[in-house]
Structures are given as structure tokens and as C-alpha cells.
Design a protein around this nucleic acid. Structure first.
Lengths: 212, 212, 212, 212
DNA sequence: GATGAATGAGCTTTCATTCAT
DNA sequence: GATGAATGAAAGCTCATTCAT
């Protein structure tokens, strides 16, 4: 799976990801990326063809390496819909926060990129998750556990939207959740768990709630 | 309220907003903005000093003009907490979707801008809303209507995060909510109402849900 | 004589002189000059037509106001050639150091300006002095006081060249003539007197020296 | 000695020197320099980083290549102080007129540049010469050949100041020393010799003159 | 008489990319 | 396979000047 890119290529891809995530695609110069990756400027064109194609490669790199995970997680386990939903949320949160940089790049691309190929890749990837969730919800409804009237696509957006807000690490979050003197890791972990708890609670409520 | 900027300045600000929203800040050239606004390139420097300051002005323009709205909406009305929450959500959705472009700019700025002044403006603005919501929730809890255990800041992020996902108009959304042959306005309206319904349902559920 | 320019014009001329002297002609923007003079930007075009013409006016202003001085100083006095030369040198040093800024502008114009009208004005002005000095030297030679073999134009250049070097206030001078804790005025005066002494001594020596 | 800059770099440096010398630093655009050097505009940034650094490089190029010359000229020769002074003057005149363009750039920089690094380089370079001359004069005085009462730093300024006046090639000079129908080279040579003769005569006179 | 608004031309610098080796 | 050198295009910004009032 990781045979697609050589070591040096991955080195570049991850440097690009780091820069794209904080400065955006247009804001990151090929020179800076090369410098960050510790390679020659010309190497990027040499390996990826162009800056645009480098961005695409960043997506292929990350998406390829993380897609299957979730499918297996849910597919065959012997769990009820609620439990499955909890596992799904935990999985999504863990995955998105682990690759926070990449998801910032993704969000940015969604926001400003005109590249249609990219838009397709992103939509496809999200679609995969949606289908999963829709199946899961449908199953729960069939079993009369989940209420009718749940808007699955929007519920899906609520999950990812909330995580994105946390992943962007806005100044707002720093005020609302003061870091104090915790270590970076401790703070991150704490935030991640609070997020999981909040999402599980909220989504479960939405699925079980009887109101209109 | 709108005395701060002259007609021609507003013309520029809104052209900038439009471009920033689709191409990002770095991706929009001053020349393009000038062209979009139908003014001379030099005029942007003349009126705003620099591209960076133009971005700040875009924020001042929008934020100044929409801040007070919500406060009054909630302040003195004779409503119960649930009703208030519904009014709040409707207000936020309407406001954010009305100024979709601006909120895309905001999201982009949050994601990639290193500008501290800007980060401050954004955080301040969000903080205002959070305080409102926290008061609202606290009141509902005091009245034993809302459950304890609700994470107000994260709930807040779920609301804005969901709306952002809709506002970014991702390719995903176009697939999950096919436009069909509806007019732009009709489609927008339908989506907006679906979003309101979803959010009201979900947030209410989260506030009333008794589970852990 | 000073009726040529109004008060506000002189205000501008002297602001221009100050800026031109430290930043050069091209390096001084019309905006900066207007700001330094405390007037509107458009006023400079209004009064002088263009930046180039403003520079010319700076010359007319200074040269007109100082030309005659020297002629009278020497013309009819009842002095011997040596004494006259000393008076001349003192006069030139005083004049050039009093209007140090202007002479920096002049030197700069000589160095970089392609303006022919300006070059003419400068050459004319210098020519006046040269004629004076040549007459003076010729008289001294006729009276067998000054030696033959003196190169009058180059001697003239040695005088102005030396003063220019002092007027430019090079870093070199600050090292060779340390200011110590003298006041600005005291230091200037001391330097001026040292310069006069040096020039009188040197020029007299050159005029009286019998060597080849 | 000339290994510091590549052939193409020197090509640019000398084009810059030519333009700076006639139009000043601010008056010479990078585009013009590139055109004069027959290279691409971007190449200047590529090789020198910025226009300012290009100017510094012009100085390093010339100063490095001409510094040592003089020291050796004087150091160990078996000459009396007068002879040494004559050799010194001839050397300085030759050097400064050979690199007339550069010395115009230098004068201009002295006049208008705010660059401290540059000011330092210039002052250092002049200081070297001053020390040499001061030693030379002191030796002459010890040997009772030169008079006391000579102001060495100012004498130094008289030498360079005079040469600068000639090097600037003012309109005045063209009138006082008409070129007639001589070739450029012949005229230059004649002027150079006249200047040497004048300076040697004048400086010797000043050093030997007994008057106050 | 005096000026704020506006502008075309030009500035230096950075960009992604190409090419010869 | 890998890279230093080179470049056309475009960036943001400042300039002297004009013009309507």
C-alpha cells in the first residue's frame, strides 16, 4: 500500500502537508516545501510534475492509507447499532485528530480549490463514510432503536463539522478550553476525549430523541 | 452603522469578500479584486493601505454590521429556554447562510492566517455567541429543563461546524442533497430549512437527553 | 529678491531641500516632501508644476539669494591679493557650510541629474566664482606675489572639493575628527574653523610655492 | 582575488556600476540593470538577493580588488617622504580615475545612502588611506622635511575631494578645460596629468610651506 | 486659490517551472 | 537519477501626476 511512494517522496509529501496545513496551498511556496523536506527545488517537479499534482499526491497518500480501516471496524462485529455508532465516532475522531494537518489541508482544499479532480476525491471519500453511516442508521431504525426523522447526511456533517472546528485549533478553543500548564500531549488527549464524549452523547441523543 | 466605509469602499470590500471566499486570501490578487470591483488597482492601496488591511476591513465591515442582532433577539423576550434555543439556531443559520461568502472567508482565515489581530477579532466574535449560549443553557439547567452534562463550548462548535460544512458547499453536499431542477433560490431555501430542522432537533435532543 | 517665492512656496522649497539632501532627488517622494512641508500633495504640482521643476526652484531660490554676496566682498576693497584670497576662502566656506543641505543637493544633482537646464545653472554659478578667482590670481601674479604655474580651475576645484567632502559629513570625518561631548554647534564651529585654516594655509602655499 | 564572483555576476556588477554612476542607486531600476547586463530581471535577485545587496556587492567587488595595491606601493621602497607623497598622489589619481564610475557610485552612496553597513565599508576604506598618509607625513616631519601644522585628515580630503570633482565630470570642467577636438582618451589623459601635476604641486607646497 | 480623490505606469521581488548537464 | 542555473509571469505596492470641485 505504501509502495506507491518512495521514502524521499513521502518525505516531501509530509513536508508539503505540514506547510499546506498552516499556510494553505497557495500560501506555501515550492521552495519552502523543498526546504522543509530537505530536498532540491527541482526535485518536486521531478517527482510530482507540478505543485498541483503534489497536492493531489498528498491526498492519495493519506486517503489510500486510511480508507479501509473504518470499513472493517464496523462490518462484521457483533455489535448493536448504538455501540457501532459509538465505535464509528471514536474511530473518526481518532483518525481526524491523528492526521490533523491533513484534514486542515482537506478543509482548505474544499474551501478554495477549483480543482475538480480533487473535489471528486474528497466527495468520494466522504461518500464512503456517509453510506456506512446511512446503513448503520437504517439498521437501527429497522430494529426500532433509532427514531425516524433523522437526517443522516446532515448528522454526518455535524460530526465532521464539529471535529473540524476542533482540528482548526481556533483561538476561540484556546479560550474556551484553557490549556493551563498541561503538556501538549495531555491537553490534546483531554480535548480528544471531551470531543468524543460530546459527540457520542449528542449523536446518540439525536438518534434516540423522540421529539419532532 | 455603515458610515464607516464609503460606497466605493463597500464596493471593494464586497468584491474582495467574493473572491476571498472562492479563492482564499493568498489566491486572490489585488488586481483581480480591483477588476471585480470595477476600480483601479491603486485604489485598494489608497483606501485600505494594503491587502492585509483590506482583509481586516472585510471583517470589520461584516462583524460590525451583524453583531448586535442576536443579543437583542434573545435578551428580553418572554420565552422558555427551549424556544430561545430554537430562535438562536434559526438566527445563526439565517445569518451565516445569508453571508455565506463572508463565513467562508472567516473559515479560511481561521485555517491559514497568521494574523494575530484577525485571530483576535474572530475569537472575540465567537466568544460573544458562546456567552449567550452558555447563559441560555445555564438558565435551562436551573429550571431543570436541560440536562447537566452538556458541554456548552463543544455544542456551540457543533452548531457552527455543521453550518460551515453546509456553507462551504462541498461536492459531497451536492451528491447527498441533489439539486434537481430547482431554482437556486428554492434549493438554497430548502437546504436552509432542512439545516435548521436538523440542528434544532439535534441540539434539543442533546439538551434534553438523559443518557450519560 | 525674495519676492519670487511666497511664504508657502519657500516652506515647500526648504522641506524639499532637506529631503533631497539626505535621500537624493529620486529617493524623496513628493508625498514625503508635502508631509515635511505640512501641505497638501497636490499643492506641489499646483505651485511648481512638477517634481523636476521643484528641484529647479530649489536652485533658483538658493542661488539667487547668495550670488551677489561674494562679488561685492572682493570687488572694491583695498586689499592685497593674499588677503583677498583669504577673505574669499572664508566667504566660500561660510556660505557652503551654512547651506550645507543645499550643497549636498547640488553635489547630488551634479552627480546624477540628466537635466541640462540644471547642469547649466550649476556650471554658470561655478563659472562666476572661477572668473573671480582667476582675476584674483592674475592680479597676484602681475604683482609678482603669486607664482606662475598655478592651475586656477583645479585650485578652484580643490577648494570646493575639500569643502564638499566636509559637507557630506562622511563617516570617515566622524572618526578622524571625533565629536566627543561637544555640542552640535560647538563641533560644527570648530570644524569650520579648522577647515578655513587648512584651506587658507594650503591655497596660500600653492600660490606662493616656488617648486615646479 | 576575483574568485568571489562568477563571470555572469561580474557582468551584472559592472552594468550596475555603470547605471548607478550616472543615475544614482534609486534612479537605476533593476529592470534597466538587467537589460544593460543582458540578463534576465529575476537573475539579479537570484544572484544577489536584492537591489540593496547588489549595491553592497559592487563595493565588495571593487574594494577587494584594489585595496592592497597602494600599501605595497609605499611600504618598503627606498624613497624620501616627498617622493613617496608624489607616488601616493599618482597612485590615488590613477586608481580613482580608472574606476571613475565606481567612485561616482561611492560618492553618491556617501551622500544619500542610509545603509550603515555601506557607510562602514566606505569609512574603513578611507581610513586605510588616511593612516598611510599620516604615517608618511609624520615621517617627513620627523626628518624635518615637512612642516608642523599640517592637518593630515583635511589634506587627505583635499586630495580625494579634488579628484572627485574631476571624476564627476561636471559641466564646469568642460568649460574650464575645453575638450576641443581631442579624442576621448587623449583628453582624459591630459586631464589626468594636469590633475596629478596640480595635486603634487599643491600638496608639496602645503607640506613644505613655512607660513602659519 | 486649494485639495481630496483617483489613476496608469512603474517599481522590486517572488513565483512555479524548465532545461542542460 | 538528480540538480544548479535560469526565466517569464505575476505578485503587492508606490510613484508623480491629473482632475473635478
Amino acid at each position: 500500500m505504501s509502495e506507491e511512494f518512495s521514502g524521499k517522496q513521502i518525505q516531501i509529501l509530509e513536508a508539503a502537508e505540514r506547510l499546506f496545513s498552516t499556510r494553505g496551498f497557495v500560501g506555501s511556496s515550492v521552495r519552502d516545501i523543498a526546504h522543509e523536506a530537505g530536498v532540491n527545488v527541482a526535485m518536486i517537479a521531478y517527482y510530482f510534475g507540478s505543485k498541483e499534482k503534489l497536492l493531489l499526491s498528498v491526498f492519495h497518500h493519506r486517503i489510500a492509507s486510511s480508507r479501509i480501516a473504518l470499513e472493517h471496524l464496523l462490518a462484521d462485529k457483533n455489535m448493536g447499532p448504538i455501540e457501532k455508532m459509538e465505535v464509528f465516532i471514536e474511530g473518526v475522531v481518532d483518525r481526524m485528530l491523528k492526521h490533523k494537518d491533513f484534514h486542515r489541508v482537506l478543509l482548505n482544499a474544499q474551501l478554495t480549490s477549483g480543482n475538480e479532480e480533487l473535489a471528486g476525491i474528497i466527495a468520494d471519500s466522504k461518500m464512503k463514510n456517509l453510506e456506512l453511516v446511512q446503513q448503520l442508521i437504517a439498521q437501527g431504525q429497522r430494529e426500532k432503536i433509532f427514531q425516524r426523522g433523522v437526517n443522516a447526511p446532515l448528522l454526518m456533517l455535524s460530526v465532521t463539522g464539529t471535529i473540524y472546528q476542533v482540528a482548526t485549533g481556533s483561538a476561540y478553543l484556546k479560550v474556551a478550553f484553557p490549556k493551563g500548564d498541561k503538556s501538549d500531549e495531555a491537553y490534546e488527549a483531554e480535548l480528544r476525549e471531551a470531543l468524543k464524549k460530546h459527540l457520542k452523547r449528542t449523536i446518540k441523543a439525536a438518534l434516540l430523541y423522540e421529539g419532532k
